[in-house]
Protein backbone atom coordinates (compact mmCIF):
# COMPACT_ATOMS: atom_id res chain seq x y z
CA UNK A 1 0.00 0.00 0.00
CA UNK A 2 2.71 2.48 0.91
CA UNK A 3 4.55 3.64 -2.15
CA UNK A 4 7.95 5.12 -1.59
CA UNK A 5 7.05 6.57 1.77
CA UNK A 6 9.95 7.86 3.75
CA UNK A 7 8.08 9.36 6.67
CA UNK A 8 9.79 8.38 9.89
CA UNK A 9 7.74 6.39 12.35
CA UNK A 10 6.51 8.47 15.21
CA UNK A 11 5.10 7.02 18.42
CA UNK A 12 1.35 6.55 18.12
CA UNK A 13 0.61 9.12 20.79
CA UNK A 14 2.66 12.22 20.45
CA UNK A 15 2.78 15.49 22.29
CA UNK A 16 3.78 17.24 19.12
CA UNK A 17 1.18 19.62 17.74
CA UNK A 18 1.11 19.63 13.93
CA UNK A 19 -1.84 21.96 13.32
CA UNK A 20 -2.60 24.64 15.83
CA UNK A 21 -5.40 27.20 15.65
CA UNK A 22 -5.45 30.05 18.14
CA UNK A 23 -8.41 32.40 18.26
CA UNK A 24 -8.96 31.66 14.59
CA UNK A 25 -11.74 33.84 13.22
CA UNK A 26 -13.08 34.43 9.74
CA UNK A 27 -15.83 36.89 8.97
CA UNK A 28 -17.39 37.10 5.50
CA UNK A 29 -19.43 40.29 5.38
CA UNK A 30 -22.00 39.94 8.14
CA UNK A 31 -21.48 36.21 8.60
CA UNK A 32 -18.95 34.80 11.05
CA UNK A 33 -17.88 31.53 9.49
CA UNK A 34 -15.25 30.65 12.09
CA UNK A 35 -15.50 32.14 15.56
CA UNK A 36 -12.44 32.20 17.84
CA UNK A 37 -11.55 28.60 17.15
CA UNK A 38 -8.82 27.04 19.28
CA UNK A 39 -7.80 23.49 18.56
CA UNK A 40 -4.80 21.25 18.04
CA UNK A 41 -4.23 18.33 15.75
CA UNK A 42 -1.60 15.74 16.64
CA UNK A 43 0.16 13.03 14.67
CA UNK A 44 -0.38 9.29 14.81
CA UNK A 45 -4.17 9.25 14.90
CA UNK A 46 -7.01 10.21 12.61
CA UNK A 47 -8.57 13.40 13.92
CA UNK A 48 -12.12 13.92 12.78
CA UNK A 49 -13.41 17.41 12.17
CA UNK A 50 -17.09 17.00 12.77
CA UNK A 51 -19.85 19.49 12.25
CA UNK A 52 -23.10 20.04 10.41
CA UNK A 53 -23.06 21.52 6.91
CA UNK A 54 -22.24 25.20 7.07
CA UNK A 55 -20.56 24.90 10.47
CA UNK A 56 -17.25 26.27 9.20
CA UNK A 57 -15.28 23.10 8.46
CA UNK A 58 -14.27 24.00 4.92
CA UNK A 59 -13.53 27.59 5.87
CA UNK A 60 -11.25 26.40 8.66
CA UNK A 61 -9.41 24.15 6.23
CA UNK A 62 -9.04 27.00 3.76
CA UNK A 63 -7.59 29.13 6.55
CA UNK A 64 -5.13 26.36 7.45
CA UNK A 65 -3.98 26.27 3.81
CA UNK A 66 -3.62 30.03 3.62
CA UNK A 67 -6.22 30.25 0.85
CA UNK A 68 -8.25 32.67 2.93
CA UNK A 69 -6.79 35.16 5.35
CA UNK A 70 -8.09 35.00 8.92
CA UNK A 71 -9.96 38.05 10.18
CA UNK A 72 -8.32 37.44 13.55
CA UNK A 73 -6.20 34.81 15.21
CA UNK A 74 -3.63 32.48 13.70
CA UNK A 75 -3.28 28.96 12.48
CA UNK A 76 0.07 27.25 12.05
CA UNK A 77 1.16 24.09 10.36
CA UNK A 78 4.20 22.46 11.88
CA UNK A 79 4.83 25.69 13.75
CA UNK A 80 4.60 28.00 10.76
CA UNK A 81 1.85 29.76 8.82
CA UNK A 82 1.16 27.76 5.64
CA UNK A 83 2.25 30.62 3.40
CA UNK A 84 5.75 30.43 4.86
CA UNK A 85 6.28 26.75 4.15
CA UNK A 86 9.10 26.47 1.62
CA UNK A 87 7.77 23.32 -0.08
CA UNK A 88 4.17 23.09 1.13
CA UNK A 89 3.14 19.97 -0.79
CA UNK A 90 5.91 18.06 0.94
CA UNK A 91 4.62 19.15 4.33
CA UNK A 92 0.85 19.20 3.90
CA UNK A 93 -1.29 17.25 1.46
CA UNK A 94 -4.83 18.50 1.16
CA UNK A 95 -7.98 17.40 -0.56
CA UNK A 96 -10.34 20.36 -0.42
CA UNK A 97 -12.70 19.74 -3.24
CA UNK A 98 -12.30 17.41 -6.14
CA UNK A 99 -13.48 20.08 -8.56
CA UNK A 100 -10.39 22.22 -8.00
CA UNK A 101 -8.89 20.86 -11.22
CA UNK A 102 -8.69 22.21 -14.79
CA UNK A 103 -10.93 19.78 -16.64
CA UNK A 104 -8.93 20.10 -19.86
CA UNK A 105 -5.76 18.71 -18.35
CA UNK A 106 -5.09 14.99 -18.07
CA UNK A 107 -4.77 13.45 -14.62
CA UNK A 108 -1.06 12.92 -15.24
CA UNK A 109 -0.46 16.50 -16.42
CA UNK A 110 -2.43 17.89 -13.50
CA UNK A 111 -0.26 16.03 -11.02
CA UNK A 112 2.89 16.85 -12.97
CA UNK A 113 2.12 20.59 -12.74
CA UNK A 114 1.79 20.27 -8.98
CA UNK A 115 4.88 18.08 -8.67
CA UNK A 116 7.07 20.50 -10.60
CA UNK A 117 5.99 23.45 -8.45
CA UNK A 118 7.40 21.70 -5.38
CA UNK A 119 10.41 19.96 -6.96
CA UNK A 120 8.80 16.52 -6.71
CA UNK A 121 9.91 13.84 -9.18
CA UNK A 122 7.89 12.42 -12.07
CA UNK A 123 8.34 8.98 -10.56
CA UNK A 124 6.30 10.10 -7.60
CA UNK A 125 3.48 11.19 -9.96
CA UNK A 126 3.30 7.68 -11.39
CA UNK A 127 3.45 6.18 -7.89
CA UNK A 128 0.49 8.16 -6.53
CA UNK A 129 -1.56 7.51 -9.66
CA UNK A 130 -0.97 3.84 -9.05
CA UNK A 131 -1.79 4.16 -5.37
CA UNK A 132 -5.23 5.67 -6.03
CA UNK A 133 -5.91 3.31 -8.93
CA UNK A 134 -5.94 5.89 -11.75
CA UNK A 135 -2.96 4.60 -13.76
CA UNK A 136 -5.15 3.29 -16.57
CA UNK A 137 -6.92 6.62 -17.03
CA UNK A 138 -3.91 8.87 -16.32
CA UNK A 139 -3.97 10.21 -19.87
CA UNK A 140 -7.68 11.05 -19.83
CA UNK A 141 -8.91 14.58 -19.34
CA UNK A 142 -9.84 15.18 -15.70
CA UNK A 143 -13.06 16.86 -16.88
CA UNK A 144 -14.32 13.50 -18.08
CA UNK A 145 -13.82 11.88 -14.68
CA UNK A 146 -16.73 10.79 -12.51
CA UNK A 147 -17.04 12.40 -9.10
CA UNK A 148 -15.41 9.36 -7.53
CA UNK A 149 -12.46 9.41 -9.94
CA UNK A 150 -12.10 13.14 -9.36
CA UNK A 151 -11.98 12.45 -5.65
CA UNK A 152 -9.26 9.87 -6.22
CA UNK A 153 -7.29 12.37 -8.29
CA UNK A 154 -7.59 14.87 -5.44
CA UNK A 155 -6.32 12.26 -3.01
CA UNK A 156 -3.41 11.49 -5.36
CA UNK A 157 -2.55 15.20 -5.32
CA UNK A 158 -2.64 15.19 -1.52
CA UNK A 159 -0.28 12.20 -1.34
CA UNK A 160 2.05 13.60 -4.02
CA UNK A 161 4.60 15.19 -1.72
CA UNK A 162 4.59 12.25 0.73
CA UNK A 163 3.63 14.76 3.42
CA UNK A 164 3.59 14.16 7.19
CA UNK A 165 0.32 16.09 7.45
CA UNK A 166 -2.82 15.27 5.48
CA UNK A 167 -6.14 17.05 5.36
CA UNK A 168 -9.26 15.72 3.70
CA UNK A 169 -12.46 17.72 3.40
CA UNK A 170 -15.40 15.31 3.13
CA UNK A 171 -13.32 12.68 1.31
CA UNK A 172 -16.20 10.24 1.01
CA UNK A 173 -18.14 12.59 -1.27
CA UNK A 174 -18.97 10.87 -4.52
CA UNK A 175 -17.11 7.67 -3.70
CA UNK A 176 -18.86 4.34 -4.11
CA UNK A 177 -19.00 1.99 -1.10
CA UNK A 178 -15.81 0.27 -2.20
CA UNK A 179 -14.11 3.64 -2.47
CA UNK A 180 -15.27 4.63 0.99
CA UNK A 181 -13.83 1.47 2.50
CA UNK A 182 -10.62 2.16 0.62
CA UNK A 183 -10.26 5.73 1.86
CA UNK A 184 -11.02 4.69 5.44
CA UNK A 185 -8.22 2.16 5.27
CA UNK A 186 -5.94 4.71 3.62
CA UNK A 187 -6.52 7.29 6.34
CA UNK A 188 -5.95 4.78 9.10
CA UNK A 189 -2.75 3.49 7.56
CA UNK A 190 -1.48 7.04 7.01
CA UNK A 191 -2.08 7.75 10.68
CA UNK A 192 -0.50 4.46 11.69
CA UNK A 193 2.64 5.55 9.84
CA UNK A 194 2.85 8.43 12.29
CA UNK A 195 1.30 11.05 10.05
CA UNK A 196 -1.18 13.67 11.10
CA UNK A 197 -4.54 13.03 9.47
CA UNK A 198 -7.25 15.67 9.79
CA UNK A 199 -10.49 14.75 8.09
CA UNK A 200 -13.76 16.64 8.02
CA UNK A 201 -17.20 15.14 7.73
CA UNK A 202 -20.77 15.86 8.56
CA UNK A 203 -21.44 12.11 8.71
CA UNK A 204 -21.15 10.83 12.24
CA UNK A 205 -21.19 7.18 11.22
CA UNK A 206 -18.22 7.84 8.96
CA UNK A 207 -16.29 9.51 11.77
CA UNK A 208 -17.12 6.77 14.24
CA UNK A 209 -15.43 4.29 11.91
CA UNK A 210 -12.28 6.22 11.14
CA UNK A 211 -11.45 8.82 13.73
CA UNK A 212 -10.01 8.45 17.19
CA UNK A 213 -9.86 12.08 18.06
CA UNK A 214 -12.55 14.62 17.38
CA UNK A 215 -12.76 18.34 16.91
CA UNK A 216 -16.45 19.23 16.89
CA UNK A 217 -17.56 22.49 15.32
CA UNK A 218 -20.97 24.12 15.17
CA UNK A 219 -21.76 27.60 13.88
CA UNK A 220 -18.06 28.36 13.64
CA UNK A 221 -17.35 27.55 17.27
CA UNK A 222 -15.34 24.64 18.54
CA UNK A 223 -17.80 22.70 20.70
CA UNK A 224 -15.56 19.86 21.80
CA UNK A 225 -12.04 18.58 21.38
CA UNK A 226 -11.81 15.05 22.66
CA UNK A 227 -11.62 11.35 21.80
CA UNK A 228 -14.55 9.71 20.06
CA UNK A 229 -15.23 7.53 23.12
CA UNK A 230 -14.99 10.42 25.55
CA UNK A 231 -17.26 12.51 23.38
CA UNK A 232 -19.95 9.88 23.22
CA UNK A 233 -19.72 9.19 26.95
CA UNK A 234 -20.04 12.84 27.83
CA UNK A 235 -22.86 13.66 25.47
CA UNK A 236 -25.14 10.64 25.33
CA UNK A 237 -26.43 7.96 27.70
CA UNK A 238 -26.98 4.30 27.07
CA UNK A 239 -30.50 3.02 27.47
CA UNK A 240 -32.42 -0.22 27.62
CA UNK A 241 -34.91 -0.99 24.90
CA UNK A 242 -37.92 -2.85 26.23
CA UNK A 243 -40.66 -4.50 24.18
CA UNK A 244 -43.57 -6.19 25.92
CA UNK A 245 -47.15 -7.13 25.02
CA UNK A 246 -48.01 -6.22 28.61
CA UNK A 247 -46.69 -2.69 28.36
CA UNK A 248 -49.82 -1.22 29.90
CA UNK A 249 -48.95 -2.95 33.13
CA UNK A 250 -45.18 -2.60 32.90
CA UNK A 251 -44.76 1.05 31.97
CA UNK A 252 -46.40 2.56 35.10
CA UNK A 253 -44.15 0.39 37.28
CA UNK A 254 -41.07 1.79 35.58
CA UNK A 255 -42.12 5.42 35.79
CA UNK A 256 -43.20 4.89 39.40
CA UNK A 257 -39.57 4.07 40.21
CA UNK A 258 -38.55 7.46 38.84
CA UNK A 259 -36.75 6.10 35.78
CA UNK A 260 -36.89 8.11 32.62
CA UNK A 261 -39.03 6.31 30.06
CA UNK A 262 -39.55 7.29 26.44
CA UNK A 263 -41.38 5.77 23.54
CA UNK A 264 -39.19 4.03 20.96
CA UNK A 265 -40.09 2.78 17.50
CA UNK A 266 -41.77 -0.62 17.07
CA UNK A 267 -44.10 -0.49 20.07
CA UNK A 268 -41.10 -0.40 22.38
CA UNK A 269 -39.89 1.95 25.09
CA UNK A 270 -36.49 3.26 26.11
CA UNK A 271 -35.57 3.22 29.75
CA UNK A 272 -32.71 5.40 30.89
CA UNK A 273 -30.48 5.05 33.93
CA UNK A 274 -31.16 1.48 34.91
CA UNK A 275 -29.64 -1.95 34.30
CA UNK A 276 -31.51 -4.54 32.16
CA UNK A 277 -31.40 -7.07 35.04
CA UNK A 278 -33.46 -4.73 37.21
CA UNK A 279 -36.07 -4.28 34.51
CA UNK A 280 -36.18 -8.02 33.84
CA UNK A 281 -36.71 -8.84 37.49
CA UNK A 282 -39.38 -6.20 37.83
CA UNK A 283 -41.26 -7.55 34.81
CA UNK A 284 -41.00 -11.12 36.14
CA UNK A 285 -42.52 -10.15 39.47
CA UNK A 286 -45.27 -8.14 37.79
CA UNK A 287 -46.04 -11.05 35.48
CA UNK A 288 -45.34 -8.97 32.36
CA UNK A 289 -43.98 -10.86 29.35
CA UNK A 290 -40.80 -9.46 27.79
CA UNK A 291 -40.21 -9.84 24.03
CA UNK A 292 -37.13 -7.71 23.98
CA UNK A 293 -34.65 -6.39 26.50
CA UNK A 294 -31.66 -4.77 24.81
CA UNK A 295 -28.92 -2.51 26.05
CA UNK A 296 -28.42 0.18 23.41
CA UNK A 297 -25.03 1.89 23.44
CA UNK A 298 -25.19 5.53 22.51
CA UNK A 299 -24.06 6.41 19.03
CA UNK A 300 -21.78 9.20 18.03
CA UNK A 301 -24.70 10.49 16.05
CA UNK A 302 -26.80 10.89 19.18
CA UNK A 303 -24.01 12.61 21.05
CA UNK A 304 -23.46 14.89 18.14
CA UNK A 305 -27.13 15.78 17.77
CA UNK A 306 -27.34 16.66 21.43
CA UNK A 307 -24.28 18.84 21.35
CA UNK A 308 -25.09 20.66 18.15
CA UNK A 309 -28.85 20.90 18.66
CA UNK A 310 -28.71 24.67 18.64
CA UNK A 311 -25.76 25.16 16.38
CA UNK A 312 -27.18 23.74 13.19
CA UNK A 313 -27.11 26.41 10.53
CA UNK A 314 -30.30 25.41 8.76
CA UNK A 315 -33.14 23.84 10.67
CA UNK A 316 -35.97 21.99 9.03
CA UNK A 317 -39.19 23.15 10.59
CA UNK A 318 -42.14 20.81 10.78
CA UNK A 319 -45.29 22.42 9.55
CA UNK A 320 -48.49 21.55 11.38
CA UNK A 321 -51.03 20.00 9.06
Amino acid sequence: MAVGRTCPKIAAVSLEVMIQATGLTKVYGARTAVDHADFEVRPGVVTGFLGPNGAGKSTTMRLILGLDRPTAGTVTVNGRPYRRLPSPLREVGALLDAKAVHGGRSAYQHLLCLARSNAISRKRVAAVLDEVGLTDVAGNRAGEFSLGMGQRLGIAAALLGDPPILMFDEPGNGLDPEGIVWIRGLMRSLAAEGRTVFVSSHLMAEMAQTAEHLVVIGRGRILAETTVRGFVGANANSHVRVRSPDMIRLAPLLTARGWSVRADEGQAIRVYGVAPETIGDLAYHAGARLHELTVVQPSLEEAFMRLTADSVEYHAHAHPA
Binding site: R62, L65, G66, L67, Y82, R83, L85, P88, L89, V92, A94, L96, D97, K99, A100, V101, H102, G103, L114, S117, N118, A157
Partner: peptide, 18 residues
Protein backbone atom coordinates in the same frame (compact mmCIF):
# COMPACT_ATOMS: atom_id res chain seq x y z
CA UNK B 1 -9.12 33.30 -15.45
CA UNK B 2 -9.53 29.58 -16.20
CA UNK B 3 -7.90 28.85 -12.85
CA UNK B 4 -10.74 30.74 -11.20
CA UNK B 5 -13.38 29.28 -13.50
CA UNK B 6 -12.32 25.70 -12.76
CA UNK B 7 -11.32 26.10 -9.11
CA UNK B 8 -7.75 25.12 -10.00
CA UNK B 9 -6.55 28.34 -8.35
CA UNK B 10 -7.07 26.77 -4.91
CA UNK B 11 -4.94 23.80 -5.85
CA UNK B 12 -2.32 26.10 -7.39
CA UNK B 13 -2.14 28.30 -4.31
CA UNK B 14 -1.92 25.31 -2.00
CA UNK B 15 1.12 24.24 -4.03
CA UNK B 16 2.62 27.74 -4.31
CA UNK B 17 1.22 29.72 -1.39
CA UNK B 18 3.44 32.71 -2.05
Amino acid sequence: STEYATGMIRTSLAAVPR
